[in-house]
Design a protein around this nucleic acid. Structure first.
Lengths: 184, 184
DNA sequence: GTCTATACAGGGATAGAC
DNA sequence: GTCTATCCCTGTATAGAC
């Protein structure tokens, strides 16, 4: 019944996600998206009434996906050494959030709010992971979990940002960053 | 004679830089910029004929500024422990490049080319710094300079990207990232 | 160098037929 | 649900007077 509509909406959100992650919210038009999906712009607006709503839905989807993914990582492993690679890979593969964060102030209200929520979720997960790792003595004891969460997010999302011009190599996130990050 | 014009163009590029770094290339209009500067959009186009040219000029300026800054850091100190903080701070304070990299594929041709050049310059500097630090035995000997350059850029620019929502704290880039980056 | 006025394309969004 | 056609606004850019 409503099956075909749902499928169509998923197709739209998938194409929308790709465009958003490539050129950002203001980098493409609803007509561009309609062409990508293969329908008219009027049909597109039938499924997703405004551009704001469309982008919001995409971000919401990504937020759900990431929350589930991070929860799964937390449930699958207890130790940080095994959580780390999957976690960093997940965040490094997520270019959407990095691109939208870049234009945050220019985003329409709903989409902007949803993105802030996504960011807040991520910081929450990362802080929790760091806290546990410190308690388990798998991280230095004098580390602040919040600072580490911010740094991890910056590193992974920065890599995502530059992934189009310099693909993250196998050794990228494995380098010993002590000389970069540790104080004198 | 041409003095007032140059001053005006600098005013324009300064306001343009702020807008570009805040909401990205497609996040504002030439009218917005004209309003910001305090002139009509026609006057704006008198100084900078196209939006592409305007953004290109801003990126070019930033490229010059960064090249001089990094050269100065390299000349001022010889050792990596003293180069590191100034270097990372310079890159973390540069939000413009991070925002524009996000929409790279959607940028007009000249601006896109100029941005790629800026990125290439940065990687060049970072790779050189890393190479020297390794030779001076201030970094682990088994590190690949290119990988480290990419990672440093990702970390700093990621921090720049998220600086609007979570200002980089004093401990941020000082954390020991071994648990994040080093392999199992 | 600055303005008003305007051209013209492209943007988001809607009407209404099928 | 999809289309064609269209509305109306915004966007870039130009013309031409002052």
């Amino acid at each position: 019944m409503a099956q075909r509509k749902n499928i169509a909406r998923d197709d739209i959100l998938l194409s929308a996600h790709a465009l958003l992650a490539n050129v950002g919210f203001h980098g493409f038009s609803m007509r561009d998206l309609a062409d990508e999906v293969g329908i008219s712009s009027a049909s597109l607006h039938h499924h997703t009434p405004t551009k704001d709503e469309m982008a919001t839905a995409v971000v919401q989807r990504e937020r759900d996906r990431l929350n589930k993914r991070l929860a799964s990582i937390g449930a699958e492993h207890e130790d940080w050494p095994r959580r780390r690679p999957e976690l960093m890979q997940s965040l490094t593969e997520t270019r959407l959030t990095a691109v939208l964060m870049a234009e945050l102030a220019g985003l329409p209200p709903k989409c902007q709010a949803e993105l802030r929520l996504l960011h807040s979720n991520l910081i929450g997960w990362l802080t929790r992971f760091a806290t546990e790792a410190i308690r388990r003595q798998e991280m230095p004891q004098n580390t602040e979990p919040e600072a580490l969460a911010g740094t991890m997010l910056a590193l992974a999302q920065g890599a995502a940002l530059y992934s189009t011009v310099a693909p993250v190599g196998p050794t990228w996130l494995l380098a010993d960053l002590r000389p970069v990050t540790s104080a004198l």
